[in-house]
């Protein structure tokens, strides 16, 4: 169901660097009835820790997971993730 193949949409060259995009997942969770990271993780098919890492900009999710997150909130991808660095 979840598929094994995925594409990394952003790879940081500096290991300590943040992802080159921001996200509104925290706000969207709050607006979605104060959904917890664990609940979102369950819906998307990842762990709570992975949602926390994405929220904090520490981890770039695969395109598939990014779309799944957007789908949970019923938003287009660019309303959840915003490119910051050019």
């Amino acid at each position: 169901m979840w598929g094994r193949s995925y594409i990394i949409i952003a790879v940081a060259t500096d290991p300590m660097a943040q992802t080159p995009f921001t996200n509104d997942i925290r706000t969207l969770r709050f607006l979605a009835g104060e959904m917890t990271q664990g609940d979102l993780g369950d819906k998307v098919g990842v762990t709570r820790q992975t949602i926390a890492a994405i929220e904090q900009g520490k981890y770039s999710p695969s395109l598939e997971v990014a779309f799944r997150i957007a789908h949970v909130f019923g938003k287009p991808l660019e309303e959840v993730f915003q490119w910051q660095r050019d």
Partner: peptide, 8 residues
Amino acid sequence: DLKEDERE
């Protein structure tokens, strides 16, 4: 019981 996700 959780399966290993993509980050893991």
